[in-house]
Nucleic acid binder design. Sequence first.
RNA 1: GCGGCAUUGGCGGAAUUGGUAGACGCGCCAGACUUAGGAUCUGGUUCGCAAGAGUGUAGGUUCGAGUCCUAUAUGCCGCACCA
Length: 939
Amino acid sequence: MDYDFQAIEKKWQQEWNQRKAYEVKNPTGSDKQKEPYYVLDMFPYPSGAGLHVGHPLGYIASDIVARYKRQQGYNVLHPMGFDAYGLPAEQYAIQTGQHPEITTEKNIARYVEQLSKIGFCYDWGRSVRTCDPDFYRWTQWAFCRMFNSYYDTDKQQARPISELVARLEKEDSHWATMSERERQEYLMQYRIAYLADTKVNWCPKLGTVLANDEVSEGLSVRGGYPVEQRVMRQWCLRVSAYAQRLLEGLDKIDWTDSLKDTQRNWIGRSEGAEMRFAIKGQDEPFTIFTTRADTVYGVTFMVLAPESEYVQRVVTEEKRQEVEEYLQWVKRRTERERIADRHVTGVFTGSYAINPLTEKEIPIYVSDYVLAGYGTGAIMAVPAHDSRDYAFACHFGLPIIPLIEGADVSEQSFDAKEGRMINSGILNGLEVKEAIAKMKAYITEKGIGRVKVNYRLRDAIFSRQRYWGEPFPVYYKDDMPYLIPEKCLPLRLPEVKDFKPTEDGQPPLGHAEKWAWDEKNEQVVDKKLIDNKTVFPLELCTMPGFAGSSAYYLRYMDNKNDNELVSREANTYWRQVNLYIGGTEHATGHLIYSRFWNKFLYDLGVVCEDEPFKKLINQGMIQGRSNFVYRYTGEGATGNLYVSYNLIDTPPYKGHVQPIHVDVNIVKNDILDVAAFRQWMPDYKDAQFVYSDGSSDVDNPYMGNATDKQYICGWAVEKMSKSMYNVVNPDDIVERYGADTLRLYEMFLGPLEMSKPWDTNGIDGVHRFLRKLWNMYETLTNEEPTADELRSLHKLIKKITWDIENYSFNTSIPAFMIAQSELAGLKCTKRAVLEQVAALLAPYAPHIAEEMWHRCGHDDLVIDAEWPKWNEQYLEESGVKYPVQFNGKVRFTIECAKDTPKDEVEKMVLAHADTTKYLNGNAPKRVIVVPGKIVNVVV
RNA sequence: GCGGCAUUGGCGGAAUUGGUAGACGCGCCAGACUUAGGAUCUGGUUCGCAAGAGUGUAGGUUCGAGUCCUAUAUGCCGCACCA
């Protein structure tokens, strides 16, 4: 019987559904507890374009692990959900008036359908979507808790704000005299979710602010629109309070070094010192941050960030206008201009600071190369040893004093962090490292400054001026925010008549009619009733995309719980995600925010693990592999003659062809389907070709119908996108080859973590393997397997087990192929062998494995089959000594004395019982003797 | 500029603790069966006529290096005026 993959896959998908094969239960009280294992994919944003062939890569890998762990007897949680709030649905809504909810619903349905076809073992009953009120209720809840918490720097954890209030009442005499509003303002400086005027990335085109990780090179990551800096009153999360813990937590988790480095880089811890510099003629000094305390003697000027509060304090009357003009100019510049044009700019403020060590007067400048958001927004400039300061000093003709022996600063600065100090008073003769330490001690002792650690990590801006997101459970009384009570959650997203911002520039929620809070009756009421006595306006912003994705993995543990985000019981059972698979693009966004969020919940005692994701794998991106046809543009060109790729560099075509993208779906193994091309677009209806052998339709109009003529396409690796006609839809592959072939082939493409182009060349080979394997299950016998058969089988078991344990899925497919060909060569029809092969194949190709498993006479499902165990004895009995190497290499190790001569060793090898058995009395091919160590024998 | 990753046949890639480099697949070549085949099966396929050479390049460690070390080139990714 032929391998009818369509029938098999349909049959088993239905069967799995009916038997509720993938339903996962939390153990209750008296249950015998199976060991839990939690495998998670980063949930997708359901875009209108549907899944392409790159999406399932990680999902297949996690599915393999999930199925494998299940066969090993674990209780496996392997859920899937949707990150359903987001910009594209909202922009689509603005353009078409279609409610984002409808678009999202439609897209999710499409995703579910596509995913189902691939045969993932998700428990859809545990699915979540971030736009579901039952879900975002817990996002709002967490926000409320953050609002009601502050970060206790002594205890290094979040504590209820009520503790801070209690302390203030007891210890701070000022507190009692404060008005309610003053108190709220004061507390706002401590809350973990707080409202503040901050400089934000404002994207006028999107009409919203963006977080730092949503901006790249001055453009929005989504859409690529210009972003400018603006000061706005925004909700923020005090992520920076967790900087040190986020950094330390990395040591406890099993992520790749490159990802950890990216996060370390993003957190950007730097140890340095804060120093106070007196201002000439003023009492109050100002503070700077430096990592190079050793270079104080070389400070020849100071620089303030344009946004720094110090600027107004130090600017002199004569210079005021010039400075103001500069500040205005800086403000007008977009982030993009600032990045593109890095010429030195700045102005002198007219004031002088006093170097605390040399007592010299040094001028204070304002320049936009100093950032307001880092350190204190002010620096001491050491032109000799900092390239930025050097450029500035050269531009303004300021003195440059070298501080390290042998440094030549006539052409450029000497940025190295080693050498012996000169021109540096008390530091002279010391190495840089010693000098830094000594200076830190000195300034601490003299009260000039203190040791200080700074982080690059900023607080996350949490407001978005958008419609399609979680509403804040916040209303405003006397212009101060108050939370609606937790028991009233979820605060549902209201209907609006327009998804654009209002005419007076309010966020889209400004259009909502019923969007006010009745404090007394604790309910949402019509906006018209606002009297600011009992009915108050609600917050108009919504939360950003990362809000809903920051704790979703917890909700899967207990997604039907109406009382809590996750019950204590469920959380202490599942604990944390054992294996998390997703793209590297979330390294500084989602993966920082959810670690922060999780740590906050940990402080609250809601979760029992302070890191959410134990092991993380970044699957590589699947790029597109575009195909090209080459239009002839040379002499006598008609515009519809296309030259085969192998001829484009030969006369008369050389230099006269224009590559044109062609739909990869009408190209197979780089050979164009000529008929399909002519039908593809009206323009190509009359296309003529020059084929690979040089023959042409022009000479013979019927040539194109001949079957031995081939038109070869060129190719290139590009981003998978519609405009390049290189998007491959998994549905098409499933239709043509089946889900099992798709699954195997995606794994076969290469290592999971590496980026690679999607290349359909070669998928036939994998499909052929499945067909060949399938044919072996035609008739089965109950005979005892032979030694050779067992050897093949046990080699396979060992290999596949090793592969999955080490996430090396790509090398499993060749192992299956080899086993198949070995067993076929032995004409193996033994049930005892083939049922084990089916069980091994089940994680990779579940449908065919299921069918094979049943042909072997089983009624249960293959996913519940026990994972086969290999037996060294079988491998030994068949004449192979452990360890067995994959390529048929065999190595022995025999201990021998240091100075044993080579031929002696050879004799010893031959005398060795196991060796003799394997060698059949022949001499080994190679004997390698390492004196005093081991002997390796290659046979 | 800083940090990370990669580089192996015509192509994707194997080589798990340093031990016969090129597994497996694609493509290609030859053969078989066919009226035919973009079907199936069998065999071959790193380069070189050969001796030999060979894992980006140049060194080093080692009995032995694709694998470890140093330098260097190229490509990809992340961060970037972070003091």
